[in-house]
Design a protein around this nucleic acid. Structure first.
Lengths: 101, 101
DNA sequence: TGGCATACTAAGGAATCCTTAGCTTTACGG
DNA sequence: CCGTAAAGCTAAGGATTCCTTAGTATGCCA
C-alpha cells in the first residue's frame, strides 16, 4: 500500500533495463541463491534497504553508478547514468566546462 | 582502526565545506539536539549509516544532491555536485549533449 | 583557571534487515 | 484446459545494525 521509495524505483528500472529477474540479479551480486529472490524483491518494494556494499555490487551488475540508485531527481539521475558510461577524459572536459561558466 | 567509507568521507567533506559543526548539521537536519552530535559523528566515522530520509535531509542542508554522498568515484562525485547547482535548462542541454555524441 | 564548544565513544534498548518457508501470479506446452 | 515452472511476492522471527544515553578528551579563550 505504501509508496515506492526512490531507491526501489531506480533499482527496478535498472534491473528491467538489464533484462534479468530479481533472483538472477541477486545471484549476480553475490547473494545466496536461496535468498536472492526475497531480498531483491524487498528492495524493489521498498520493504528494506540494502547496506552500501550490497548496493555497490547491485549497481555494478546493473551497469549504473551506485549514486544513480539514490538520486530522486529524474534529470539528475539520467545524467548520472549517462556520465557512468563516459570516459575519464570526457568527464574531465565536463568538469572544466561546468567550473568555468 | 577501520577505513572510512565513501559516505562518511563525502559527508565530512560537504559539512566542512559548509562550515558547520557535527552537532549543528544534525540539528539543521531535524535531529534532536541531544542526539545530533553523536549521530553525525557516527556517520562520519562510518560507525553507522543513516536511513535514506535522514541522508536526504543532510544533503539538503549541505547543498549537495543526496547521490553525491554515495558516489565512490571522485570525478563523478564532483560532477554530481556541480550538476546540483545547474539550472533545469543546463541539465537538459547536457542530457542532449551526452545522448548524441 | 573555569567554562564552553567540538569531536568522539561504549553500551544497550530500539529499530531494521536477512533468512526461512512458503503462497500467488504469470507464461508456456501439451 | 490443466500442469508446471519461473517469476514475483510476503509473514515471521532470529540476526544485525542503528539510535539514544551518558559520558570522556581536547582545545580555546575570557
Amino acid at each position: 500500500m505504501e509508496e515506492r521509495s526512490v531507491f526501489a524505483r531506480r533499482l527496478r528500472a535498472a534491473r528491467e533495463a538489464r533484462g534479468v529477474s530479481q533472483k538472477q540479479l541477486g545471484i549476480l551480486a553475490g547473494i545466496d541463491q536461496f535468498v536472492a529472490s526475497a531480498r531483491i524483491n524487498q528492495y524493489e518494494r521498498s520493504k528494506h534497504v540494502p547496506d552500501l556494499h550490497t548496493a555497490q555490487r547491485l549497481a555494478a551488475e546493473l551497469n549504473v553508478p551506485v549514486s544513480y540508485l539514490y538520486e530522486p531527481d529524474d534529470d539528475l539521475a539520467q545524467l548520472i547514468r549517462l556520465l557512468g558510461a563516459c570516459s575519464r577524459d570526457q568527464r574531465h572536459q565536463l568538469i572544466a566546462q561546468l567550473q568555468t561558466p
